[in-house]
């Protein structure tokens, strides 16, 4: 397997900034985000509009905004200013992305099998590609890969569609998978089953996983490390197991406000947003 013996980070991000030119001025959506990651499960957590998805997209060169960074490197190779031809050797092959809703990210007028083969085309062909595709469907624990291979997206449940999507992204055996809210559209038990599949893949294929989520409580039990984002900045970096000792009032607020089954409260605590959270974070 490629890169198994490599040491050092897979991905290095230093002072990543993303700006959007809008009719009402420049929106600075991501501000000075820095992190490095290895073959681990890294979570980027925040509310809608915090810049977490844009950060994930910038790594793949998929944000429509203007990206600047002191460093944005994948195995030491810069990802800034690549030509489309250079991107094609990385995007979908070495870094892949799973989006939130399989209903929109699968092509509705192609069968699952055709879509899988399309993803495999540059790696394998013919019967070998088909075998590879069926193997990937089995790897994401689809019990009847032949049936799903022939199925149309609308014939699959949400959980099944998302598994097929993950299988498709894994066809090229990427070294880094960016998953943007991959389980938010799924039922709780299916969600956990899909997470277990991702967890296995990180372990057995030595993949890095960036898990973008709004659900701190899920991330706490699933990921290794957590970046907490607010208004485009990383406010706090934590080991997932130490999330309970988070210092920042925003992180503490996010952890406290979901209703809990075991600890019922008459009223839920509400986040008191402090304008100082918007100010540049000291490194």
């Amino acid at each position: 397997m490629r890169g198994l013996m490599e040491k050092g980070p897979i991905l290095e991000v230093e002072k990543l900034n993303i700006r959007f030119n809008t009719p009402v001025g420049v929106v600075h959506a991501v501000r000075d985000v820095s992190f490095a990651m290895g073959r681990e499960k890294l979570a980027i957590v925040g509310e809608s509009g915090s810049g977490k998805s844009q950060t994930g997209r910038a790594i793949l060169g998929l944000t429509p905004g203007k990206v600047t960074a002191e460093k944005l490197a994948f195995h030491g190779q810069t990802l800034i200013g690549l030509s489309e031809q250079q991107w094609r050797t990385i995007r979908g092959k070495r870094i892949a992305m799973v989006m939130q809703d399989p209903k929109y990210s699968l092509n509705p007028v192609m069968t699952i099998g055709e879509q899988l083969l399309e993803a495999a085309r540059e790696i394998k062909e013919g019967a070998a590609a088909r075998q590879h595709a069926l193997g990937m469907l089995a790897a994401v624990r689809i019990r009847d890969p032949e049936r799903v291979f022939r199925a149309w997206p609308h014939e699959l449940s949400g959980g099944m569609g998302q598994r097929a999507m993950i299988a498709m992204m894994l066809m090229a055996e990427p070294e880094l998978l960016i998953a943007d809210e991959p389980t938010s559209a799924l039922d709780v038990t299916v969600r956990l089953q899909v997470l277990a599949i991702l967890d296995d893949l990180v372990k057995t294929r030595h993949m890095g996983l960036i898990f973008i989520s709004h659900d701190l409580n899920l991330v706490r039990t699933f990921c290794d490390r957590v970046l907490v984002m607010y208004a485009g900045q990383v406010l706090e970096k934590l080991t997932a197991s130490e999330l309970a000792e988070a210092r920042h009032p925003y992180t503490r607020g996010l952890l406290a406000c979901p209703p809990e089954i075991d600890q019922r409260r008459a009223r839920l605590p509400v986040l008191q947003r402090d304008p100082s959270w918007m100010e540049p974070v000291r490194p």
């Binding site: 038990t189 967890d199 899920l218």
Partner: peptide
């Protein structure tokens, strides 16, 4: 719910699932 007094296996599974990621329980 909070005291885990559920009779049906399906309800118990739903309750476990809502407590977060636990590979052993999911298996």
């Amino acid at each position: 719910l909070s005291e885990g007094r559920l009779l049906h296996a399906y309800s118990r599974q739903l309750l476990i699932a809502s407590r977060g990621y636990d590979p052993a329980a999911i298996a």
